[in-house]
């Protein structure tokens, strides 16, 4: 589904070029949930942004569904690949109602005729009642906003969903709900997921396979079975696992 080879991404910060991603390669099979774990500044989110075309200065090869990606993305790409952002407060337009937010992708792709049916269906799919349809983001809780953001990403029936820390801004109880929702959607729709996160426990809960990133490079790729068996080899992975374990054990 996704094939990334030797991806390098560079952006400018205060005039100085910064190499955010330095030669990353990985594959994601159709229907799989693949995780990218790392701390802030490890370049994990930059990989997602490069994939969807939000970072322009990159080199290497990337392909989605066998189609190599160039500098711009086609309308077809937008219908097949969607993204959910970390901060549900920032990813919804403050002056658009839920109805507008969900209708926009349809209108852009000339599907305005099906608007009413698909918006109601989209809300139902993410477990929101129809009464939410005409609310503004400020009238919603964090978890509800993230559900709306997920619904918006699903409006065009994508096959690949990129998740950029989708639960890190949410409370624990809400996080569980969103993770369950993503689980269900993946099962029902056969979605391929690429999940980025800093919390090893969250990523390992969702993904079968994950890659650990540090300073723009993948230091280790392993399955969650290997993780559970306690065989990560890289010291950094061990460090992350220990941190996750300690907090769990003591709890």
């Amino acid at each position: 589904m996704i094939r990334v080879r030797d991806l390098r991404v560079r952006y400018r910060e205060g005039g100085r070029p910064v190499d955010a991603v330095r030669g990353v390669s990985f594959d994601v099979a159709p229907g799989e949930c693949f995780g990218l774990v790392g701390e802030s500044g490890s370049g994990k989110s930059t990989v997602l942004r490069a994939l969807v075309g939000l970072a322009s200065d990159w080199s290497g090869t990337m392909s989605v569904e066998g189609e190599p990606l160039g500098k711009s993305r086609s309308p077809r790409f937008h219908r097949r690949v969607q993204m959910v952002f970390q901060d549900p407060y920032g990813s919804l337009h403050p002056r658009h109602t839920v109805d507008q937010a969900l209708s926009e992708p349809l209108l852009v792709h000339g599907l305005g005729r099906e608007r009413d049916r698909r918006v109601v269906q989209g809300l139902a799919d993410v477990g929101l009642e129809e009464s939410f349809r005409f609310r503004y983001p400020h009238q919603l809780s964090g978890g509800q906003r993230q559900r709306v953001a997920i619904a918006r990403a699903l409006m065009l029936d994508p096959v690949l969903l990129l998740l950029d820390e989708p639960t890190s801004a949410l409370d624990v109880s809400v996080q569980a709900e969103i993770l369950n929702l993503l689980h269900r959607l993946r099962r029902e729709r056969g979605l391929t997921l690429l999940l980025v996160g800093h919390n090893l426990a969250v990523v390992a809960h969702m993904a079968r396979r994950l890659a650990v990133m540090q300073a723009g490079e993948i230091v280790e790729t392993l399955t969650t079975a290997q993780l559970r068996a306690g065989t990560p080899t890289h010291p950094y992975t061990r460090c992350l696992l220990d941190a996750a374990r300690i907090s769990r054990r003591r709890g």
């Binding site: 624990v172 426990a201 809960h205 969702m206 993780l227 559970r228 374990r245 769990r248």
Partner: peptide
């Protein structure tokens, strides 16, 4: 509600 790195999916 906490996910467990070693728990079930």
């Amino acid at each position: 509600a906490l996910p467990d790195p070693e728990g079930s999916p």
